[in-house]
Design a protein around this nucleic acid. Sequence first.
DNA 1: CTACCTATTTACCAGTTGGTAAGTTACTTG
DNA 2: CAAGTAACTTACCAACTGGTAAATAGGTAG
Lengths: 189, 189
Amino acid sequence: MARPDTSQRILDIAERLVQTRGYNGFSYADIASALHVTKASLHYHFPAKADLGARLIERYERNFLAALVRIDAEGRDAREKLRRYAAIYEDVLGDNRMCLCGMLAAEFGTLPKSMRDDMRHFFDENERWLVGVLQQGKREKVLKFSGTAGEVAQALLGTLEGAMMIARSYGDVARFKSASDRVLGELGA
Amino acid sequence: MARPDTSQRILDIAERLVQTRGYNGFSYADIASALHVTKASLHYHFPAKADLGARLIERYERNFLAALVRIDAEGRDAREKLRRYAAIYEDVLGDNRMCLCGMLAAEFGTLPKSMRDDMRHFFDENERWLVGVLQQGKREKVLKFSGTAGEVAQALLGTLEGAMMIARSYGDVARFKSASDRVLGELGA
DNA sequence: CTACCTATTTACCAGTTGGTAAGTTACTTG
DNA sequence: CAAGTAACTTACCAACTGGTAAATAGGTAG
Protein backbone atom coordinates (compact mmCIF):
# COMPACT_ATOMS: atom_id res chain seq x y z
CA MET A 1 0.00 0.00 0.00
CA ALA A 2 0.87 3.73 0.01
CA ARG A 3 3.56 5.00 -2.35
CA PRO A 4 6.62 2.98 -3.08
CA ASP A 5 9.05 5.74 -2.19
CA THR A 6 9.98 3.71 0.86
CA SER A 7 13.46 3.14 -0.52
CA GLN A 8 14.01 6.89 -0.60
CA ARG A 9 12.69 7.32 2.93
CA ILE A 10 15.04 4.58 4.11
CA LEU A 11 17.91 6.34 2.37
CA ASP A 12 16.91 9.68 3.93
CA ILE A 13 17.07 8.27 7.44
CA ALA A 14 20.18 6.20 6.82
CA GLU A 15 21.90 9.21 5.31
CA ARG A 16 21.25 11.31 8.38
CA LEU A 17 22.45 8.45 10.60
CA VAL A 18 25.70 8.01 8.69
CA GLN A 19 26.33 11.74 8.66
CA THR A 20 25.79 12.09 12.40
CA ARG A 21 26.88 8.69 13.79
CA GLY A 22 28.89 7.02 11.03
CA TYR A 23 28.35 3.83 9.05
CA ASN A 24 29.41 1.71 12.04
CA GLY A 25 27.35 3.85 14.40
CA PHE A 26 23.88 2.79 13.33
CA SER A 27 21.96 -0.43 12.70
CA TYR A 28 19.01 -1.59 10.64
CA ALA A 29 17.04 -1.51 13.89
CA ASP A 30 17.65 2.25 14.17
CA ILE A 31 16.17 2.86 10.71
CA ALA A 32 13.30 0.45 11.34
CA SER A 33 12.18 2.19 14.51
CA ALA A 34 12.50 5.65 12.95
CA LEU A 35 10.40 4.53 9.99
CA HIS A 36 7.95 2.33 11.95
CA VAL A 37 8.59 -0.76 9.86
CA THR A 38 10.34 -4.04 10.61
CA LYS A 39 13.98 -4.77 9.97
CA ALA A 40 13.00 -7.45 7.47
CA SER A 41 11.26 -4.84 5.37
CA LEU A 42 14.52 -2.90 5.11
CA HIS A 43 16.29 -6.03 3.90
CA TYR A 44 13.70 -6.30 1.11
CA HIS A 45 14.83 -2.91 -0.22
CA PHE A 46 18.51 -3.24 0.65
CA PRO A 47 19.48 -6.92 1.11
CA ALA A 48 22.75 -6.20 2.92
CA LYS A 49 24.03 -3.15 4.78
CA ALA A 50 26.78 -2.80 2.20
CA ASP A 51 24.08 -2.39 -0.49
CA LEU A 52 22.45 0.35 1.53
CA GLY A 53 25.83 1.99 2.01
CA ALA A 54 26.68 1.90 -1.67
CA ARG A 55 23.32 3.30 -2.79
CA LEU A 56 23.66 5.96 -0.12
CA ILE A 57 26.94 7.19 -1.56
CA GLU A 58 25.63 7.04 -5.12
CA ARG A 59 22.60 9.16 -4.28
CA TYR A 60 24.66 11.59 -2.23
CA GLU A 61 27.11 12.05 -5.08
CA ARG A 62 24.33 12.50 -7.62
CA ASN A 63 22.70 15.22 -5.52
CA PHE A 64 26.01 16.86 -4.74
CA LEU A 65 27.14 16.98 -8.36
CA ALA A 66 23.72 18.34 -9.34
CA ALA A 67 24.32 21.22 -6.93
CA LEU A 68 27.68 21.87 -8.59
CA VAL A 69 26.00 21.95 -12.01
CA ARG A 70 23.58 24.52 -10.61
CA ILE A 71 26.49 26.64 -9.40
CA ASP A 72 27.99 26.47 -12.89
CA ALA A 73 24.66 27.34 -14.47
CA GLU A 74 24.49 30.59 -12.54
CA GLY A 75 27.58 31.67 -14.44
CA ARG A 76 29.28 33.69 -11.68
CA ASP A 77 32.99 34.17 -11.49
CA ALA A 78 35.27 31.46 -10.11
CA ARG A 79 35.74 33.10 -6.72
CA GLU A 80 31.99 33.21 -6.19
CA LYS A 81 31.68 29.58 -7.31
CA LEU A 82 34.16 28.51 -4.66
CA ARG A 83 32.26 30.53 -2.08
CA ARG A 84 29.08 28.68 -3.01
CA TYR A 85 30.91 25.38 -2.92
CA ALA A 86 32.02 26.10 0.63
CA ALA A 87 28.50 27.22 1.46
CA ILE A 88 27.22 23.70 0.69
CA TYR A 89 29.55 22.32 3.33
CA GLU A 90 28.46 25.04 5.73
CA ASP A 91 24.80 24.17 5.24
CA VAL A 92 25.43 20.48 5.91
CA LEU A 93 27.36 21.39 9.04
CA GLY A 94 24.61 23.80 10.11
CA ASP A 95 22.30 20.78 10.18
CA ASN A 96 24.80 19.16 12.55
CA ARG A 97 25.89 16.68 9.96
CA MET A 98 29.27 15.75 8.60
CA CYS A 99 29.81 15.34 4.87
CA LEU A 100 28.71 11.76 4.13
CA CYS A 101 31.94 10.86 2.38
CA GLY A 102 34.12 12.72 4.86
CA MET A 103 32.56 10.55 7.54
CA LEU A 104 33.17 7.42 5.50
CA ALA A 105 36.77 8.47 4.88
CA ALA A 106 37.35 8.19 8.63
CA GLU A 107 35.76 4.75 8.68
CA PHE A 108 37.68 3.71 5.59
CA GLY A 109 39.43 0.82 7.34
CA THR A 110 36.15 -0.99 8.04
CA LEU A 111 34.28 -0.34 4.79
CA PRO A 112 33.46 -2.97 2.16
CA LYS A 113 35.38 -2.47 -1.07
CA SER A 114 32.44 -1.20 -3.12
CA MET A 115 31.87 1.59 -0.62
CA ARG A 116 35.56 2.51 -0.62
CA ASP A 117 35.53 2.85 -4.39
CA ASP A 118 32.28 4.84 -4.42
CA MET A 119 33.59 7.15 -1.71
CA ARG A 120 36.78 7.89 -3.60
CA HIS A 121 34.75 8.47 -6.74
CA PHE A 122 32.87 11.21 -4.89
CA PHE A 123 36.13 12.92 -3.97
CA ASP A 124 37.50 12.48 -7.49
CA GLU A 125 34.45 14.14 -9.00
CA ASN A 126 34.65 17.00 -6.52
CA GLU A 127 38.29 17.46 -7.38
CA ARG A 128 37.49 17.43 -11.08
CA TRP A 129 34.92 20.18 -10.64
CA LEU A 130 37.26 22.23 -8.47
CA VAL A 131 40.05 21.92 -11.02
CA GLY A 132 37.73 23.36 -13.65
CA VAL A 133 36.77 26.31 -11.45
CA LEU A 134 40.38 26.94 -10.42
CA GLN A 135 41.57 26.96 -14.03
CA GLN A 136 38.74 29.29 -15.00
CA GLY A 137 39.64 31.57 -12.11
CA LYS A 138 43.28 31.68 -13.07
CA ARG A 139 42.40 32.40 -16.71
CA GLU A 140 40.07 35.21 -15.71
CA LYS A 141 42.67 36.51 -13.24
CA VAL A 142 40.23 36.36 -10.36
CA LEU A 143 42.15 33.57 -8.62
CA LYS A 144 45.86 33.05 -8.10
CA PHE A 145 47.78 30.05 -6.82
CA SER A 146 51.09 28.25 -7.17
CA GLY A 147 51.39 24.65 -8.33
CA THR A 148 48.80 22.78 -10.37
CA ALA A 149 45.05 23.23 -10.09
CA GLY A 150 44.87 19.57 -9.09
CA GLU A 151 47.12 20.14 -6.11
CA VAL A 152 45.09 23.13 -4.99
CA ALA A 153 41.85 21.23 -5.46
CA GLN A 154 43.06 18.35 -3.27
CA ALA A 155 44.27 20.74 -0.59
CA LEU A 156 41.01 22.66 -0.67
CA LEU A 157 38.93 19.50 -0.38
CA GLY A 158 40.96 18.28 2.58
CA THR A 159 40.79 21.63 4.31
CA LEU A 160 37.02 21.89 4.03
CA GLU A 161 36.43 18.30 5.15
CA GLY A 162 38.81 18.66 8.08
CA ALA A 163 37.51 22.05 9.19
CA MET A 164 34.00 20.62 9.01
CA MET A 165 34.85 17.59 11.09
CA ILE A 166 36.53 19.53 13.87
CA ALA A 167 34.01 22.36 13.89
CA ARG A 168 31.24 19.79 14.28
CA SER A 169 32.83 18.33 17.39
CA TYR A 170 32.76 21.85 18.87
CA GLY A 171 29.22 22.48 17.65
CA ASP A 172 30.63 25.66 16.14
CA VAL A 173 29.75 26.51 12.54
CA ALA A 174 31.61 29.83 12.83
CA ARG A 175 34.81 27.88 13.30
CA PHE A 176 34.26 26.27 9.91
CA LYS A 177 33.37 29.60 8.32
CA SER A 178 36.56 31.13 9.62
CA ALA A 179 38.76 28.41 8.14
CA SER A 180 36.80 28.38 4.90
CA ASP A 181 36.98 32.20 4.46
CA ARG A 182 40.70 32.07 5.14
CA VAL A 183 41.55 29.44 2.52
CA LEU A 184 39.27 31.07 -0.05
CA GLY A 185 40.77 34.46 0.74
CA GLU A 186 44.25 33.16 0.04
CA LEU A 187 43.12 32.13 -3.44
CA GLY A 188 41.73 35.57 -4.30
CA ALA A 189 43.76 37.51 -6.87
CA MET B 1 53.49 -13.84 36.08
CA ALA B 2 55.66 -11.78 33.67
CA ARG B 3 55.67 -8.00 33.90
CA PRO B 4 52.58 -6.05 34.78
CA ASP B 5 52.79 -3.68 31.81
CA THR B 6 49.71 -5.37 30.42
CA SER B 7 47.72 -2.14 30.66
CA GLN B 8 50.19 -0.44 28.35
CA ARG B 9 50.13 -3.32 25.89
CA ILE B 10 46.35 -3.21 25.87
CA LEU B 11 46.52 0.52 25.20
CA ASP B 12 49.05 -0.02 22.40
CA ILE B 13 46.77 -2.43 20.59
CA ALA B 14 43.60 -0.45 21.25
CA GLU B 15 45.31 2.72 20.03
CA ARG B 16 46.24 1.13 16.74
CA LEU B 17 42.70 -0.24 16.38
CA VAL B 18 41.07 3.14 17.00
CA GLN B 19 43.47 4.85 14.61
CA THR B 20 42.82 2.37 11.82
CA ARG B 21 39.21 1.25 12.43
CA GLY B 22 37.69 3.80 14.79
CA TYR B 23 36.29 3.51 18.31
CA ASN B 24 33.13 1.83 17.01
CA GLY B 25 35.15 -0.36 14.69
CA PHE B 26 36.77 -2.66 17.23
CA SER B 27 35.72 -4.77 20.21
CA TYR B 28 37.29 -6.14 23.36
CA ALA B 29 37.47 -9.47 21.56
CA ASP B 30 39.79 -7.94 18.94
CA ILE B 31 42.23 -6.79 21.61
CA ALA B 32 41.96 -10.08 23.49
CA SER B 33 42.86 -12.18 20.47
CA ALA B 34 45.74 -9.89 19.49
CA LEU B 35 47.12 -10.09 23.04
CA HIS B 36 46.29 -13.79 23.63
CA VAL B 37 44.33 -13.12 26.80
CA THR B 38 40.63 -13.36 27.62
CA LYS B 39 38.14 -10.50 27.36
CA ALA B 40 37.57 -10.68 31.12
CA SER B 41 41.21 -9.87 31.71
CA LEU B 42 40.80 -6.67 29.71
CA HIS B 43 37.84 -5.68 31.86
CA TYR B 44 40.08 -6.06 34.91
CA HIS B 45 42.36 -3.31 33.56
CA PHE B 46 39.66 -1.19 31.91
CA PRO B 47 36.22 -1.95 33.41
CA ALA B 48 34.24 -0.37 30.60
CA LYS B 49 35.10 0.47 27.00
CA ALA B 50 34.59 4.16 27.81
CA ASP B 51 37.36 3.88 30.44
CA LEU B 52 39.68 2.39 27.87
CA GLY B 53 38.73 5.15 25.45
CA ALA B 54 39.37 7.92 27.96
CA ARG B 55 42.75 6.55 29.03
CA LEU B 56 43.64 6.11 25.39
CA ILE B 57 43.08 9.79 24.67
CA GLU B 58 44.91 10.86 27.82
CA ARG B 59 47.99 8.84 26.95
CA TYR B 60 47.90 9.96 23.33
CA GLU B 61 47.71 13.60 24.37
CA ARG B 62 50.53 13.18 26.88
CA ASN B 63 52.83 11.65 24.26
CA PHE B 64 51.81 14.18 21.65
CA LEU B 65 52.43 17.18 23.89
CA ALA B 66 55.77 15.69 24.93
CA ALA B 67 56.73 15.66 21.26
CA LEU B 68 55.79 19.34 21.02
CA VAL B 69 57.95 20.14 24.05
CA ARG B 70 60.81 18.37 22.29
CA ILE B 71 60.26 20.51 19.20
CA ASP B 72 60.38 23.61 21.40
CA ALA B 73 63.53 22.37 23.15
CA GLU B 74 65.37 22.17 19.87
CA GLY B 75 64.98 25.92 19.62
CA ARG B 76 64.57 26.24 15.85
CA ASP B 77 62.66 29.04 14.19
CA ALA B 78 58.87 29.00 14.02
CA ARG B 79 58.72 27.90 10.41
CA GLU B 80 60.83 24.86 11.17
CA LYS B 81 58.71 24.09 14.24
CA LEU B 82 55.58 24.01 12.09
CA ARG B 83 57.35 21.76 9.61
CA ARG B 84 58.15 19.36 12.42
CA TYR B 85 54.62 19.58 13.70
CA ALA B 86 53.32 18.53 10.29
CA ALA B 87 55.98 15.80 10.17
CA ILE B 88 54.38 14.17 13.21
CA TYR B 89 51.12 13.87 11.30
CA GLU B 90 52.99 12.56 8.29
CA ASP B 91 54.67 9.84 10.35
CA VAL B 92 51.36 8.69 11.82
CA LEU B 93 49.86 8.57 8.33
CA GLY B 94 52.92 6.73 7.03
CA ASP B 95 52.02 3.98 9.48
CA ASN B 96 48.58 3.89 7.86
CA ARG B 97 46.95 5.40 10.89
CA MET B 98 44.69 8.38 11.34
CA CYS B 99 45.28 10.84 14.19
CA LEU B 100 43.55 9.27 17.19
CA CYS B 101 41.55 12.40 17.97
CA GLY B 102 40.84 13.15 14.33
CA MET B 103 39.27 9.72 14.12
CA LEU B 104 37.27 10.34 17.27
CA ALA B 105 36.12 13.71 15.94
CA ALA B 106 34.36 11.85 13.13
CA GLU B 107 32.72 9.51 15.64
CA PHE B 108 31.83 12.40 17.92
CA GLY B 109 28.10 11.71 17.75
CA THR B 110 28.46 8.28 19.36
CA LEU B 111 31.11 9.00 22.00
CA PRO B 112 30.51 9.08 25.76
CA LYS B 113 30.80 12.56 27.25
CA SER B 114 34.15 12.01 28.98
CA MET B 115 35.72 11.04 25.66
CA ARG B 116 34.23 14.06 23.93
CA ASP B 117 35.74 16.37 26.52
CA ASP B 118 39.13 14.65 26.43
CA MET B 119 39.18 14.78 22.65
CA ARG B 120 38.47 18.51 22.56
CA HIS B 121 41.11 19.05 25.21
CA PHE B 122 43.64 17.48 22.85
CA PHE B 123 42.68 19.91 20.10
CA ASP B 124 42.70 22.85 22.52
CA GLU B 125 46.22 22.03 23.66
CA ASN B 126 47.39 21.65 20.06
CA GLU B 127 45.85 25.00 19.25
CA ARG B 128 47.53 26.60 22.27
CA TRP B 129 50.94 25.35 21.17
CA LEU B 130 50.34 26.45 17.59
CA VAL B 131 49.32 29.94 18.75
CA GLY B 132 52.61 30.24 20.61
CA VAL B 133 54.62 29.20 17.56
CA LEU B 134 52.62 31.47 15.25
CA GLN B 135 53.12 34.47 17.51
CA GLN B 136 56.83 33.72 17.80
CA GLY B 137 57.04 33.44 14.03
CA LYS B 138 55.28 36.72 13.48
CA ARG B 139 57.50 38.47 16.03
CA GLU B 140 60.63 37.08 14.41
CA LYS B 141 59.26 37.97 10.97
CA VAL B 142 59.64 34.43 9.73
CA LEU B 143 55.88 33.90 9.44
CA LYS B 144 53.15 36.18 8.15
CA PHE B 145 49.37 35.85 8.35
CA SER B 146 46.23 37.92 8.58
CA GLY B 147 43.77 37.62 11.46
CA THR B 148 44.58 36.28 14.91
CA ALA B 149 47.03 33.50 15.67
CA GLY B 150 44.10 31.58 17.13
CA GLU B 151 42.20 31.67 13.86
CA VAL B 152 45.26 30.51 11.93
CA ALA B 153 45.92 27.75 14.47
CA GLN B 154 42.36 26.43 14.12
CA ALA B 155 42.55 26.53 10.34
CA LEU B 156 45.92 24.80 10.35
CA LEU B 157 44.72 22.05 12.65
CA GLY B 158 41.64 21.41 10.53
CA THR B 159 43.66 21.37 7.33
CA LEU B 160 46.17 18.83 8.61
CA GLU B 161 43.49 16.55 10.08
CA GLY B 162 41.41 16.72 6.92
CA ALA B 163 44.32 16.21 4.54
CA MET B 164 45.39 13.27 6.65
CA MET B 165 41.97 11.67 6.61
CA ILE B 166 41.50 11.92 2.87
CA ALA B 167 45.08 10.97 2.01
CA ARG B 168 44.69 7.85 4.14
CA SER B 169 41.67 6.72 2.16
CA TYR B 170 43.81 6.96 -0.98
CA GLY B 171 46.77 5.27 0.71
CA ASP B 172 48.77 8.25 -0.49
CA VAL B 173 51.10 10.00 1.96
CA ALA B 174 52.35 12.30 -0.82
CA ARG B 175 48.87 13.74 -1.05
CA PHE B 176 49.11 14.79 2.58
CA LYS B 177 52.60 16.16 2.10
CA SER B 178 51.45 18.29 -0.81
CA ALA B 179 48.62 19.87 1.18
CA SER B 180 50.82 20.31 4.24
CA ASP B 181 53.66 21.96 2.26
CA ARG B 182 51.16 24.27 0.63
CA VAL B 183 49.57 25.56 3.82
CA LEU B 184 52.94 25.95 5.52
CA GLY B 185 54.32 27.70 2.46
CA GLU B 186 51.53 30.24 2.59
CA LEU B 187 52.55 31.12 6.15
CA GLY B 188 56.21 31.75 5.20
CA ALA B 189 57.27 35.41 5.33
C1' DC C 1 52.29 -21.34 57.23
C1' DT C 2 48.90 -18.23 56.49
C1' DA C 3 46.73 -14.34 54.83
C1' DC C 4 46.49 -11.23 51.34
C1' DC C 5 46.83 -9.14 46.86
C1' DT C 6 47.33 -8.96 41.80
C1' DA C 7 46.43 -10.80 37.56
C1' DT C 8 44.21 -13.96 35.22
C1' DT C 9 40.77 -17.71 33.61
C1' DT C 10 36.32 -20.18 33.09
C1' DA C 11 31.79 -19.73 32.55
C1' DC C 12 28.26 -17.10 32.11
C1' DC C 13 24.63 -13.23 30.61
C1' DA C 14 21.23 -10.24 28.23
C1' DG C 15 21.02 -7.33 24.38
C1' DT C 16 22.16 -6.26 19.68
C1' DT C 17 23.99 -7.21 15.15
C1' DG C 18 23.13 -8.29 10.18
C1' DG C 19 20.49 -11.58 7.88
C1' DT C 20 16.86 -15.31 6.31
C1' DA C 21 12.57 -18.21 5.40
C1' DA C 22 7.99 -18.43 5.10
C1' DG C 23 3.80 -16.44 5.25
C1' DT C 24 0.37 -12.38 4.48
C1' DT C 25 -1.85 -8.50 2.29
C1' DA C 26 -3.20 -5.75 -1.42
C1' DC C 27 -2.82 -4.23 -5.96
C1' DT C 28 -2.42 -5.39 -11.02
C1' DT C 29 -3.03 -7.81 -15.18
C1' DG C 30 -4.29 -11.47 -18.38
C1' DC D 1 -11.67 -14.36 -11.31
C1' DA D 2 -7.19 -16.39 -11.10
C1' DA D 3 -2.31 -15.72 -11.13
C1' DG D 4 1.25 -12.97 -10.29
C1' DT D 5 3.87 -9.53 -8.10
C1' DA D 6 5.39 -5.86 -4.83
C1' DA D 7 5.73 -4.67 -0.21
C1' DC D 8 5.46 -5.97 3.68
C1' DT D 9 5.28 -8.99 8.74
C1' DT D 10 6.18 -12.75 11.93
C1' DA D 11 9.34 -15.60 13.62
C1' DC D 12 13.48 -17.05 13.59
C1' DC D 13 18.99 -17.48 13.70
C1' DA D 14 24.05 -17.61 14.73
C1' DA D 15 27.53 -14.52 15.82
C1' DC D 16 29.02 -10.89 18.38
C1' DT D 17 28.61 -6.93 21.78
C1' DG D 18 30.09 -5.08 26.35
C1' DG D 19 30.02 -6.79 30.83
C1' DT D 20 29.95 -9.77 35.39
C1' DA D 21 30.75 -13.40 39.13
C1' DA D 22 33.40 -16.72 40.92
C1' DA D 23 37.26 -19.58 40.93
C1' DT D 24 42.36 -19.99 40.52
C1' DA D 25 47.36 -19.38 40.37
C1' DG D 26 51.41 -17.03 41.91
C1' DG D 27 53.92 -13.75 44.54
C1' DT D 28 54.61 -11.19 48.90
C1' DA D 29 54.51 -9.96 53.79
C1' DG D 30 53.64 -10.86 58.63
